[in-house]
Amino acid sequence: MIKMEGINKCYRLGGENIHALSDVSFNVADGEYVAIIGPSGSGKSTLMNIIGCLDVQDSGSYKLAGTDTSKFSGRQLAKLRNTHIGFIFQGFNLLGRLNALENVELPLIYQGVRRKQRRQRAEEALSIVGLADRMKHRPSQLSGGQQQRVAIARALVANPQIILADEPTGNLDTSTGAEIMDIFEKLNAEGKTIVLITHDTNIAARAQRSLSIVDGRIGFEAQEVM
């Protein structure tokens, strides 16, 4: 599903070049549940952004579902993000002016799905994450855990093959975090490929496999026994 080879990425921060990723290579198979673990500043978010096509690598090749993304135009990348990837952010990134249902509908709007069908699919996605009774609430009227569930519903609604989660429990307390993690496991059981970023080893331990990243390099690869 994900095939990365020799990925490099540099940032200029305050006049200094920061090597966020150097020569990163790894694969994620179809239907796998992988955790990427590393301390802050290790480059794990940069890696996640490249996987999610929110950012582009300086060099190296990245193949998603068999296609090389490096030659894609902005339009093609947008389509890829829309249909193949469901991205879940640490800070939820919901639109505050829209209610839960409208937030979840957004990816379908950009797909050109008709209103009636859009509504139905968004309602379904919200029921999956257990928010059927909160559809008309705005993000500010929801708790952190509920907001993250809306974000998960938004990631699911377009039925992508891959779910990418960047510290999804980072802003949540332990018990709500655990509920969110249960959702991921359920999704994985249904056949979704999941890549999750965390700095918490307990969370990483729940994945099938975890990759460690330190100073922009993949450190070790551990097969999870579960």
Binding site: L54, G74, R75, A78, K79, R81, F87, N93, Y110, A158
Partner: peptide, 15 residues
């Protein structure tokens, strides 16, 4: 930021 969110979930520049 709003534009960033919209792009992240698949909006094109034209959208």
């Amino acid at each position: 930021r709003e534009i960033g969110i919209r792009k992240a979930i698949g909006a094109t520049r034209r959208n």
